[in-house]
Structures are given as C-alpha cells and as structure tokens.
Simulated assay, not measured.
Amino acid sequence: MTAEPHVARNYAPLDVTIAEAEGVWATDVDGRRYLDMLAGYSALNFGHRHPDLVAAATEQLSRATLTSRAFRSDQLEPFAAALAELCGKDLVLPMNTGAEAVETGIKVARAWGYRVKGVAPDAATIVVAHGNFHGRTSTIVGFSDDEEARGDFGPFAPGFVSVPFGDADAIAAAIDETTVAVLIEPIQGEAGVVVPPDGYLRRVREITSEQNVLFVADEIQSGLGRTGTTFACDREGVVPDLYLLGKALGGGIVPVSAVVGDEAVLGVLRPGEHGSTFGGNPLASAVGLRVVQLLQGGEIVERAGMLGDHLESLLEPLVGRGITGFRRVGLWAGVDIDPAAGTGREITEALLGRGVLAKDTHGQTVRLAPPLTIRASELSWGVEQLRIVLDRDSSA
C-alpha cells in the first residue's frame, strides 16, 4: 500500500518522509538526516529555512499576507523595483509558479506580436527547442517532445515550432513573418543539465534582434545564482527581452515567479487582460525582495562558481567508474550513469540509503543541484557517497 494513500499519484517519490529541514540537511520522521543535493529543483538555492528569508516571512506574516491586486500593497513596488534593477529591466509582472510565468510570457509575446510587430490576428507563432521543459500546463506540454508529459492530454494549442536545442541556424530557418518569439531555456535542466554550444545564446540574441523577434529566456531553474552567474544568459553577456523567473525567487518559503522586461515589451498588457489572485501578494513580495537583496552582493553567486569547480573535480575521477560522463555549469550537474551500474532511479535509491537526496531524470541521468550555501566538505561527502554507490566492491 502506498505511504500516501490519499495523494494523487502524479509523483513517484523516493521512500523517505521529510519532517524537518535546515540549511542543506533534511531530517525524516525517524530522525535520520540527509544531505539535500536536489534543493527543490533550485527552489532552495539558499538552503532550507534561510534565517534572513524566515525573518522576512515572519515579519510580514504579522502584518498582511494577501490583498489581491485589486489594491496596492506596500511590499510589491519595493520587490518589483529591486528585481527590475537586478535584471536591468523596467517592469516586473509577478505570478506564483514557473508554469504561470511561462504562460504569461507566451501571452505577452503574442500581444506584442499583434500590437507592436503587426502580425496578422491569431497567426502568431513561437519557436521552441526540442527537449524543453517549461512546465505542466496543457499549452506548455503541447509543445514538449516528452511523451510522458504530453501523452493523453491533447488536443493541444497550435502556434509553436520546435527545433533542435543548441542549433541557432535551425532557429533562424524557423523564423517567418508570423514569429513573435524564441522561447528557450539557456540550459535545459529537466533534460539533464544540457548545456548548449559556446556562442549559441549570443547567436540567438543576434538572430532575434535582426528579425524583430523577442528572445524569451526561461531562467526558472538556471537563474538567480545557480550557474555561478546571476542568470545563465550572463555567461555569454546576453540580455533577453523577457526573463521568466521562479523557483529560487521564493527562497523555498513561498511560490514566487515573475516575468521581467522593458516597457516596450511588457508594457503591451492592459489592465484586466491578465492577472493572478495571489501573484505579487505581500508575503511573496517581502520574501522575494529579500531574495534579491541576498543576490545583489554577488557573494553567493561567486560561491556557486567556486563550489561548482570543486564539484567538477570530484566528478571527474568517476568517469569510467560508474558514470559515462557529466555536464556541469555552476553548482549544477547532470551525471550520466553507466547502465551497467544501474538506472538513475536505482542510483538515487542507493544514495538515499547512504543519506543523500538526489533525483534522476530520463532514465540514466542523476541531477545534482545542492543549495548554494553548501560547504565544500559537505559537497565532498555527498559525492563520496555517489562513488561508494557506484563502486560495487566498496558498497558490498
């Protein structure tokens, strides 16, 4: 019998029930501690219950948590101003989840296409990439090529053209008079931390600028320090027209997402055309503001880069010893498991037995994305558990 008989089975969690968490460690109902090497898919970039974020939430809980956007709150503008400055943009449209941010970005791109570019009514198209993961809504899974995500959920909305990820020439060839945007993840997280070729993002920016098409960067997983830069786009000195942000923006405290852009793009929306009951609520804004403030100093971003280099040095000796290779950017890695060593799921189950929380994807890949607050010694210990799991002689 399932351990959660009343919970719909849209997940197949590992056999652990977390009761408490602090920093990079989680504790189960039996009191056993685990090193968190997943960090809520980057939602916990600052670790569990970061004291500054807990303080911001606690203080705001004593004042006001929700007003709805029918009224102004004293927390929304400070949050929006700080996030806009961090992104180098004019405006912030706050939402809750990453999928909501993507859906919002799609609507904004289409509205811009009709109202600014002059695309014929209901003809707008958006170029996306194979292997993408932008969320789970019916529109988004409709342009996914992951059959598990889209099977039995059609019919799907038209208006999307998919091309190979990392191929800028394919993007250029796909653009026509109906194209309003190119929507891509600068690094594909769910696909297994897939990093495009050097120069790809620069070329996408050049193509979209030349063709009068928006560049929409889904930085929901890759943004806010994970890659050793504030945004993954920063690695190539690229600024998109719209940033889609989420996950770490809520600090693991509350769901917070946002679309960030300039007046010329995000300003196309008119009152009443889009909204959210909880989007930009005072509690979310107070936490989001503190997250931005934690990033502004740059120390945690620099730390992610240094720890990422350490992670790479730990993984390199494992190539050929249970892993066939890995992709690493910042403090984020996709580790490809040799089928002879087991499936990704089997490896994460074995890691669980050794006190490490991680998650597999696409069969043979294990993602490692610990909180950016992890110590080098903790990171070493976590990868050592992976080595032991992969080394059948040592684990026997």
Results as ranks from 00 to 15, higher is better:
276 S>K: 00
276 S>L: 05
279 G>E: 11
280 G>L: 04
280 G>V: 07
281 N>P: 02
281 N>Q: 06
282 P>M: 05
283 L>E: 02
284 A>G: 15
286 A>K: 07
286 A>M: 05
287 V>P: 05
287 V>R: 02
288 G>A: 15
289 L>P: 03
289 L>Y: 11
290 R>S: 04
291 V>S: 03
292 V>F: 00
292 V>C: 11
293 Q>G: 14
295 L>E: 13
295 L>H: 10
297 G>R: 13
297 G>S: 12
297 G>C: 10
298 G>C: 03
299 E>N: 09
299 E>A: 15
300 I>A: 08
301 V>Q: 06
301 V>W: 02
303 R>H: 14
304 A>D: 04
305 G>F: 02
306 M>Y: 09
306 M>F: 03
308 G>M: 07
308 G>K: 00
309 D>A: 13
311 L>N: 00
312 E>K: 12
312 E>L: 06
312 E>N: 04
313 S>T: 14
313 S>M: 11
314 L>S: 05
314 L>P: 03
316 E>Y: 03
318 L>E: 03
319 V>E: 13
320 G>R: 12
320 G>S: 10
320 G>H: 05
321 R>I: 00
321 R>T: 01
323 I>E: 12
324 T>S: 15
325 G>V: 10
326 F>P: 12
327 R>N: 14
327 R>V: 09
328 R>V: 10
329 V>C: 08
329 V>G: 03
329 V>P: 00
330 G>V: 13
330 G>I: 11
331 L>R: 10
331 L>C: 10
331 L>M: 12
332 W>R: 13
333 A>F: 11
333 A>I: 02
333 A>K: 09
335 V>E: 08
337 I>Y: 00
339 P>W: 10
339 P>K: 12
339 P>A: 14
340 A>C: 04
341 A>Q: 05
341 A>V: 02
342 G>A: 10
342 G>P: 00
